[in-house]
Each structure stands twice: as structure tokens, then as C-alpha cells.
Amino acid sequence: MCIGPNMCKCNINYEKTSTDDCVPVCKPACKNGECIAPNKCRCSQGYCKNAHGECEPVCSSGCPNGRCVAPETCECNEGYSQNAPNICDPVCSSGCPNGRCVAPETCECNEGYSQNAPNICDPVCSSGCPNGRCVAPETCHCNKGYSLSATNICDPVCSSGCLNGRCVAPETCDCNKGYSLSALNICDPVCSSRCLNGRCVAPETCDCNKGFSLIATNMCDPI
């Protein structure tokens, strides 16, 4: 109100500016907004009032795992980073190969993988891949000297085939009972009589040469 020539006095809850205008007073001051009436703020663009009547910035993404610090501007919590605008994703220093980062330094493995060391997702092979290593889910890669069987097992390889025995290690046969290993890694039958004038064709079984016949003691006698 005018209290004298060119002299104004502001109403209660108003104050003079440097240009002698009376403007409303808001207590506390209107941060991020404009005081339009005593203790009444109008928020600036990109801000809206919270439950306490304060003007807060608005981020349409909601800033999960972070906080809105300015209109459409998120600041991520510790352990998170922005890989897309205003989206705070967790950070795993290992990179979570064969999995995904679900929380700071926490990996969740893809199907067919499991954690055998912190945040390292290794493939799982139900056979265990003896004599080899698991390179992908249910996929073994055999060591040298071994080959993969139909059941995802790495079996030793013997080039001789180990007839009358079994292959127990690369190029190593274990002979069946009644057979012995020759220098060529072949299981030959054993005949205690040594099959003179014939040959040993099975354990304790001789096959006589022409002109000889087998007698009861597994010996080849001339005919």
C-alpha cells in the first residue's frame, strides 16, 4: 500500500525488491521453483512437488538403482553404471561370461553353467568329462589319446583294437584271462604246452599243423 508520495509499504508476507516491487515471500525459499504467493511455490519445468511441498526433479524412468538429480538425469548408486540413458545396470568386474550380472559383483549363470569360482560360470557336463574337459554344456573335449564315446565319455584309443582284452589307456591293452600281451600290444592266447607242431588259437587250445593231430594233453603228435 502507498504510505506517502512515491512510497509503498508491502503487505504482510511480501517484501520489496531492488525496484521497489512487492513480491511474495515463501519460507523456506522455493528451490527449483518460483514463489507466486505467500508460502506458495510453483515448480519449474521438469520438477514436481513431493509430499513435503518441495520441488523435486522428475525422471520418467524412475531411476531404478539410482536417484533423480535433475530433470531426466539419473545418478547411479554405487556398484551400478549407466549403459543406456537413465538406466542403472549392476556392474560385475568379471563381465559374467556365460551368465548375466544381476547385482553388483553378482553373476547369475545361464542354463547349463554353474559357478565353480566366484562370478565365473563354467559349463556343466553330467559325465564329469574324465580324461578330458567340459567345453560347453554336456560337451566334452577329450585329451590326446582319447576319443569321445556316444555317452560323452572320453575313452582311451588303442590302434590295435585290443582284441581279447580292453583298452585301459592310450595304446595300452589289458588282456582277458588266458591271454598275454605281445610286444605289438596284442593279446595272444596262452597255452601252457606251448603247442609244439601247432599254434595256440585260444587259451589252452592248440591247432595242429598239417600232419599232426591233437592228443589229450593238448600236444600235437605226428600222424
Rank of each mutant, 00 (worst) to 15 (best):
N98C: 03
G99Y: 00
R100P: 03
C101A: 11
V102Q: 05
A103M: 01
E105Y: 02
T106I: 09
N110K: 04
G112E: 10
N116W: 03
N119G: 05
S127R: 03
C129L: 03
G132H: 03
V135Y: 08
A136Q: 13
C140N: 08
C140L: 06
H141D: 15
H141W: 02
G145W: 02
G145V: 09
Y146N: 10
S147A: 14
S149G: 15
T151Y: 01
N152A: 09
N152M: 02
N152H: 04
I153N: 12
I153Q: 12
C154D: 06
P156Y: 12
C158T: 05
C158N: 00
G161C: 13
G161R: 12
C162H: 01
N164D: 13
R166P: 00
R166I: 07
P170V: 14
P170Q: 06
T172W: 00
T172Y: 00
C173Q: 03
C173A: 12
C175T: 10
C175P: 08
N176H: 12
N176L: 06
Y179N: 00
A183H: 05
I186P: 03
I186E: 14
C187R: 10
D188A: 07
P189Y: 00
V190A: 05
V190N: 03
S192T: 15
S193E: 08
S193Y: 09
R194E: 15
C195T: 10
L196Q: 15
N197D: 13
N197C: 05
C200L: 06
A202G: 14
A202D: 12
C206H: 04
D207L: 13
K210D: 14
K210W: 02
F212W: 11
I215N: 15
I215R: 13
I215D: 15
T217F: 13
M219R: 14
